[in-house]
Design a binder for these strands. Structure first.
Length: 865
RNA sequence: GCCGGGAUGGCGGAACUGGUAGACGCGCCAGACUCAAAAUCUGGUAUCCGUAAGGAUGUGGGGGUUCGAUUCCCCCUCCCGGUACCA
């Protein structure tokens, strides 16, 4: 390694050598060792889309910094990497390039693995897995049959987006403005039988456990809580005014029951269908609603429309007839597909009532005696009942109990706990996924696969034509013997890809196990820190938590939760440049093809396309994406500056949980810092590495410098271990290096302090720029390798201070900065403050009302004229 | 629509528990070195007034609590993530 210590910093020379050294010595290969504390650091594994993007670089650098830091604390660190290899993009790429998804995926994996290796991440590559390989997915097929036996799997119908031209199911993403993305045909809703996992059976546990997950961000826990959406309410059965049917609805606000003025049912509701028999307008409305989106975001934003069905129900307390409407915003899949509408106390009901001239009756008034204007909008707040007969004056709880009691006694209602969470629909009508391991006999009965017949292997050398899943027409796959004899028909749907990503972290613990997992999983799990994008706050992270609990209940793992700590990463963004095209669509230009012009203050004034020299419009800063053409290819930067600079910049530009705006010139700054620290260190080493020196008789200047070095050790350790703020950790090291650089002394004491400072800087940066630090660390004369060197500890003696700064304010405005003894008490601080010239100037001739002293921080003198 | 998050110099960001707003870096300006440029080094850089000392203003907008608010509370605007078949 010594020969790598050249005068100039040349990352392209050192990085491959260091990486080869790590690989040859299997430095990051780990095994279970019960005598050592383990640390399992995991980043969300990538979808192999083709090339690494900046989001990957950022995510995996964060994980690598934490892993290498934990290793230096002496822990047995597992950091694995794998591939979330099934998914829609492979099918699209297959059609575009006429190459089978399997081949496309595997070649992407090979390319991206090489890119990850080039970044120097400390992975145990022996544990690498790809979810598209049968030796991975066979175990989730097996697990599915286990869940089937436990009754946690069922088959039911569910609505999908159906493209009537391509005769295929579309993902929400493939529906653009209500039409299929390839065919352009208006999409229809279609109900088809599909497989579900009973995640709702775990709703309470998933919710309750959040209370104990102290190391998860509050925002994510709140989102999961709201997603699960546990609510206690009343299920009420309204009798039809004519005939003997009834209409069941669920409400969390039975206290507003006297304010119900109409009912609304989904277009698919039987009452709507019955009314459509004799009413062409209703029939047309129902037909039209067949083209409604399945996406909640689209549904909630569309125009709320409805029609009266011409039937009514009786109010269960007053007997008043309430008209029943069919409305496009009531969804058949939620609850009973019907709602009671209380326009005075629900904004959506209020708007609908206003539009259709339905009565609005206020039945709740604020408890504090204030008034609300129901004419201006609904009031959803809790309060005191009014216009509610004998129940006037009751509060929410009393009203709930009273109304629930009466209706329960009359057999018209039941108290119920409801969840917003729906069961997990795992069927996908796609080819590139894990086959669902079930068969159907001649009568259509479900026959699960038996263990010895697994895996049900996905046929691979298939390109597909872009419309229906090739599996669904492949008789060689479909036609299969039943386990008990006879011929059956295979399920051709595949699993949702969230299925694979719900348990890969457990498989990493024992990737070669001849079972789904083995006992090694209980050594490593739970994951100590899980790092990934905030966009996974609910779906992936909730499915994974559920799956782990289900595995626990099948006896596969012992832990209750898979991820002890969660670190959510922000997006990587970049400015956008565009021109308005002739067709009204924007044409985006990559920032790499654009030159920007600035004024004398560095403000951007205009931008030009380099190729034609004419101006382009400057758009907002947005998440790097193909559609905005604002991606910066990490590979080009790695080739130019080396892995360490890219790693350093990514960690320095923003804290991990914030979005990061990419700046090429700031990357240059990171490179500059490494070059300068390299030069400073190699010059110091060239002068001979000093031996251990006494640090007791230092000059005041060296003492201050040395205190700064040890304060930096404290600060960086805290930033990395507790705060996960790598940007301020790096800033602190830069500051310390700046101080070291200004110290010019070449005497023994100066050289000893410089040796200590440079060693600290190199070691503290080790997890972030591991190749750079490895060479300099050895050069500084340290015998052990950097990767296994113990994390530095601050010397308490070096941290001692004699004097410190004290801010003096007058009426909250800073008027002086004075020096006081570090141990000065309140009286001493106050006395020192009150003799300051500027303080006297601002207090002269005024009455001192109060003096606030915060020892160690400030003195605030409050005066009045 | 609903749920969650965010907004601080020309730019990325710092200020951790209510206590010096702008650390560190980029950019820009000036200077040194150089025949010159690049690289490197030194100094300056929130805005306004002032030669300076110093002063006034200032953390998306409006209000509040406090000796003191980027930080806590209320209202609003804009941006971002999710919204169950993108991963």
């Amino acid at each position: 390694m010594q020969e790598l210590l050249t005068d100039r910093y040349e990352p392209d020379k050192i990085e491959p050598v260091i990486q080869q050294h790590w690989a040859e010595n299997a430095v990051f290969k780990v095994s279970e060792d019960p005598s050592r504390e383990k640390f399992y650091c995991l980043c969300m594994f990538p979808y192999p889309s083709g090339r690494l993007h900046m989001g990957h670089v950022r995510n995996y650098t964060i994980g690598d910094v934490i892993s290498r830091y934990q290793r230096m604390l002496g822990k047995n660190v597992l950091q694995p990497m794998g591939w979330d290899a099934f998914g829609l993009p492979a099918e699209n790429a297959a059609i575009e390039n006429n190459v089978p998804p399997a081949e496309w995926t595997r070649s992407n994996i090979a390319y991206m693995r090489a890119q990850l290796e080039r970044l120097g991440f400390a992975y145990d590559w022996d544990r690498e897995l790809a979810t598209c390989e049968p030796d991975y997915y066979q175990w989730e097929q097996w697990f599915f049959t286990q869940l089937y036996e436990k009754g946690l799997v069922y088959r039911d119908t569910a609505v999908v987006n159906w493209d009537p031209v391509d005769q295929t199911v579309l993902a929400n993403e493939q529906v653009i403005d209500g039409c299929g993305w390839r065919s352009g045909a208006p999409v229809e809703r279609r109900e088809i039988p599909q497989w579900f996992l009973k995640i709702t059976a775990y709703a309470d546990e998933l919710l309750d456990e959040l209370e104990r997950m102290d190391d998860w961000p509050e925002a994510v826990k709140t989102m999961q809580r709201n997603w699960i959406g546990r609510s206690e309410g009343l299920s009420i059965r309204f009798a039809l005014t004519r005939g003997d049917g009834e209409l069941e609805v669920f409400t969390t606000r039975p206290d507003t029951l006297y304010g119900a003025t109409y009912m609304a049912v989904a277009p698919e509701h039987p009452l709507a269908a019955a009314a459509a028999q004799s009413n062409a307008e209703i029939a047309a409305f129902i037909e039209e609603s067949r083209h409604q989106s399945t996406s909640e975001a689209v549904l909630e934003k569309m125009e709320k429309r409805g029609l009266p069905l011409g039937v009514s129900v009786d109010h269960p307390l007053t007997g008043e007839p309430l008209p029943v409407w069919v409305a496009n915003f009531v969804l058949i899949g939620y609850g009973t597909g019907a709602v009671m509408s209380v326009p005075a106390h629900d904004q959506r009901d209020w708007e609908f009532a206003r539009k259709h001239d339905l009565p609005i009756r206020q039945v709740i008034t604020p408890a504090d005696g204030s008034t609300v204007d129901i004419e201006a909008g609904a009031s959803a707040d809790y309060g005191i009942l009014i216009n509610s007969g004998a129940r006037d004056g009751l509060d929410f709880k009393a009203a709930f109990d009273s109304i629930a009691g009466e209706l329960e006694a009359a057999g018209r209602a039941d108290r119920q706990v409801q969840y917003r969470l729906r069961d997990w629909l795992v069927s996908r009508q796609r080819y590139w996924g894990c086959p669902i391991p079930v068969l159907y006999d001649a009568d259509g009965n479900v026959v699960p696969e038996t263990d010895e017949r697994l895996p049900i292997t996905l046929p691979e050398d298939i390109v597909g034509e872009g419309v229906v899943s090739p599996l669904s027409t492949m008789s060689a796959f479909i036609d299969a013997p039943l386990p008990d004899g006879g011929r059956g028909r295979r399920e051709t749907d595949t699993f949702d890809t969230f299925f694979e990503s719900s348990w890969y972290f457990s498989r990493f613990c024992c990737p070669d196990a001849n079972a789904m997992v083995d006992e090694r999983v209980d050594y490593w799990m739970p994951v100590d820190i899980y790092i990934g994008g905030i966009e996974h706050a609910v779906l992936h992270l909730l499915y994974a938590r559920f799956f782990h609990k289900a595995m626990r209940d099948v006896g596969l793992v012992k832990s209750d939760e898979p991820f002890k700590r969660l670190l959510t990463q922000g997006m990587v963004c970049k400015e956008t440049y565009f021109r308005d095209g002739a067709n009204g669509r924007k044409q985006y230009f990559n920032p790499g093809e654009v030159d920007v012009e600035t004024d004398e203050k560095g403000r951007v004034t205009s931008a030009r396309l380099r190729s034609d020299g004419t101006s382009v419009d400057i758009g907002p800063v947005e998440k790097m994406s193909k559609s905005k053409n604002n991606g910066v290819d990490p590979q080009a930067l790695i080739d130019r500056y080396g892995a360490d600079t890219v790693r350093l910049y990514t960690m320095f530009a923003a804290p991990p949980d914030q979005s990061l705006e990419w700046s090429d010139s700031a990357v240059e700054g990171a490179f500059r810092f490494l070059k300068s620290l390299w030069r400073m260190t190699s010059e110091h080493i060239a002068g001979g590495v000093p031996g251990p020196a006494s640090m007791t008789a230092l000059s005041p200047e060296l003492k201050t410098l040395r205190r700064h070095i040890h304060e930096t050790i404290v600060k960086v350790s805290d930033d990395i271990s507790r705060r996960y703020k790598f940007n301020t950790a790096i800033a602190a090291v830069m500051e310390m290096v700046n101080h070291l650089g200004r110290m010019r002394g070449e005497d023994d004491a100066s050289r000893a302090v410089r040796q200590e400072g440079l060693s600290a800087a190199v070691q503290l940066l080790g997890p972030i720029v591991p190749h750079f630090s490895a060479v300099l660390w050895t050069g500084l004369g340290h015998a052990e390798e950097l990767t296994d060197s113990p994390w530095p500890q601050a010397d308490e003696n070096a941290l001692e201070r004699e004097e410190m700064d004290l801010v003096v304010q007058v009426n909250g405005r800073k008027r002086a900065l004075i020096q006081v003894a570090a141990n000065a008490d309140k009286a001493a601080c106050e006395a020192a403050a009150m003799i300051d010239e500027n303080v006297l100037r601002f207090t002269a001739g005024k009455t001192i009302r109060k003096i606030v002293v915060v020892p160690g921080k400030l003195v605030n003198v409050v005066v009045a004229d």
